[in-house]
Amino acid sequence: MSKHEALSPQALLGFALADVTRLLRTIYDARLSAKGLSGASWRVLAYLYREDGLTQTKLADLLEVSRSAIGQMIDRLEAGGFVERRSDPADRRSWGVYLSPQAHETVGELMRASYAIETECFAIFNEKDLALLANLVGRLRDHLGTLPGAARKGGPGSD
């Protein structure tokens, strides 16, 4: 058996999916750094744009990072003037994270930058191919989420 044959097509696909994810993160980081953001911090802003006032715990779950990692990310976003923390009037122990007025003013520009990155990254696909790829990857993600061991140790909310 050759070295290439030692890996199943499924293993090679898994490696390719990991490479795609890494490359997308790298591209987002490089392109958004001029705006004071990383790909991960952009995702925080995008989630808040969709639903302002999420808790740090919810954001950590959505980004699949620890609460301490999201806390540091939010600290940087807050220092950059992108977000602000506000106490929850219904539960003083809980804090919501909100887009700052500055972020509300620049979110359109950031959405356009993100859309340009997406357009360039996925330009090799026509609409039909992209819809099929999104469907297949979504189905795989949903299936993997049901398998034993899918919950990450040391992941969201574990610290």
Rank of each mutant, 00 (worst) to 15 (best):
L12H: 07
R22G: 10
L13W: 10
L133D: 02
L17N: 05
M1E: 07
G80E: 12
R85Y: 07
S100K: 00
T55E: 00
A34F: 02
R76V: 09
A11T: 15
R112I: 11
A150I: 08
G71M: 09
V137C: 07
R141I: 07
L24M: 14
T57W: 04
K128C: 06
L133R: 11
R43K: 09
L23Q: 12
F122T: 02
A30Y: 05
L62D: 04
G149D: 10
A151G: 06
M111Q: 11
T57D: 09
L32W: 12
K35G: 00
A16C: 15
G81V: 03
S94N: 07
R67Y: 08
C121N: 06
G81N: 03
G138H: 06
P9Y: 07
G36C: 05
H104S: 09
T55W: 00
F125P: 07
F125W: 12
W95R: 14
H143S: 10
M73R: 15
G149T: 08
E109K: 06
A11L: 15
E109A: 12
W42Y: 08
G81H: 02
E51K: 10
A90I: 06
E51N: 05
G145Q: 12
S66Q: 11
V97C: 06
D52I: 01
F82D: 03
A16M: 15
E118S: 08
K35T: 04
L77S: 07
L110R: 02
L147A: 09
D61Q: 15
Y47T: 11
L13Q: 14
M73N: 07
A16V: 13
D29P: 01
G138L: 14
A116K: 04
L12C: 05
E84L: 13
D61P: 00
R92S: 09
K35E: 13
G149H: 07
